[in-house]
Amino acid sequence: MPSIAKLLLIVLTVAVGFFAGDLLKLLQGQTPVSLDDYCLVSTEPCTQQSVTVKANKSTSQPLVPTLVQVDWPDARSDKLVVSMQGYEMDMGNVLFTLERTATGQFSGQIILPVCTTDAMTWYGTISDGDTSINTSIRMER
């Protein structure tokens, strides 16, 4: 096989591998996530389905705790589960627990992992076991 053909085959293999996740989602008919459907956690309260979410800072930093408070009037549990994944890159799922406080709100820390980019959006859900709301957190170094 000529050298140029080998080089083209290597480039094609790398390109297919790089876009494999996107190609698989396209073939499975999954639509891209729209962050407009997600409640951005920041210092400004965000309300979705009568659940209000607020944080102690507008932008999180990797490995630095962000305090999240949730006012969930009809929660069916004493704990809420926060499940998040990266929007710009796949870094797996991270899970956090928010505990009910004496005031009836839920509170807990979210510590996001380090990624190779300077900024990233994490999106996912907060759930009481029966109901979930969509939420996202912006992280910057």
Rank of each mutant, 00 (worst) to 15 (best):
K25S: 12
L9R: 07
S42I: 02
S42A: 13
K54V: 15
Q69S: 14
T31D: 14
S58E: 09
D71T: 13
F19L: 11
L80F: 08
K57W: 09
Q30S: 13
K79N: 09
N56E: 08
S42P: 02
R76V: 09
G29T: 09
R76A: 13
V70Y: 01
L95Y: 15
G21L: 14
F19V: 04
N93Q: 12
L9I: 05
E44H: 03
G86L: 03
W72K: 00
P65W: 06
G92V: 08
L35W: 09
V53Y: 00
L12D: 10
G86M: 00
L27G: 10
T47Y: 03
I10V: 15
V51I: 13
F18V: 08
L9D: 08
Q85M: 13
A15F: 15
Q49Y: 04
T13E: 07
Q30E: 15
Q49V: 02
T66D: 07
V53K: 02
V94H: 14
N93T: 13
Q49M: 09
T101L: 12
D22A: 11
P62I: 08
Q49C: 03
A20S: 14
V81C: 02
P73Y: 10
D22K: 14
T43G: 04
S77P: 06
Q69L: 04
D37V: 00
L24I: 09
A20K: 09
K79Y: 05
A102G: 10
T47P: 00
S50M: 10
G17H: 07
E88F: 11
L35P: 06
M84D: 01
G29M: 10
A20Q: 08
V64C: 03
I10N: 07
L23N: 11
M91G: 12
N56M: 07
G17L: 14
Q61T: 07
L95M: 12
M91H: 12
G86E: 01
V81E: 05
D36Y: 04
Q28I: 07
D37T: 11
T47D: 04
G92L: 08
L12E: 07
A102V: 12
N93S: 13
C46V: 08
T47S: 14
S77K: 06
V33C: 02
L40K: 08
P45H: 10
T101R: 15
K57I: 04
L12K: 05
G21E: 11
L95N: 13
M89K: 13
F18E: 06
V68L: 03
G92F: 07
L63D: 14
T59G: 03
P62F: 10
L35E: 10
L26E: 13
A75V: 04
Q48H: 03
V68R: 00
G92Y: 09
V33K: 06
L35D: 11
E88W: 06
N93M: 11
F19R: 05
E44P: 04
L40G: 00
A55F: 01
M84R: 01
M91L: 15
C39F: 00
D74V: 10
W72M: 02
D36T: 12
D71M: 03
V64G: 00
S77R: 01
L40N: 06
K54S: 03
V82N: 01
P65N: 06
E88T: 10
W72P: 00
L24W: 15
T43M: 11
C39P: 02
P65V: 06
L98G: 04
D90I: 07
D74T: 12
L24Y: 12
T47W: 05
V11G: 07
R76Q: 14
L95Q: 12
R76H: 14
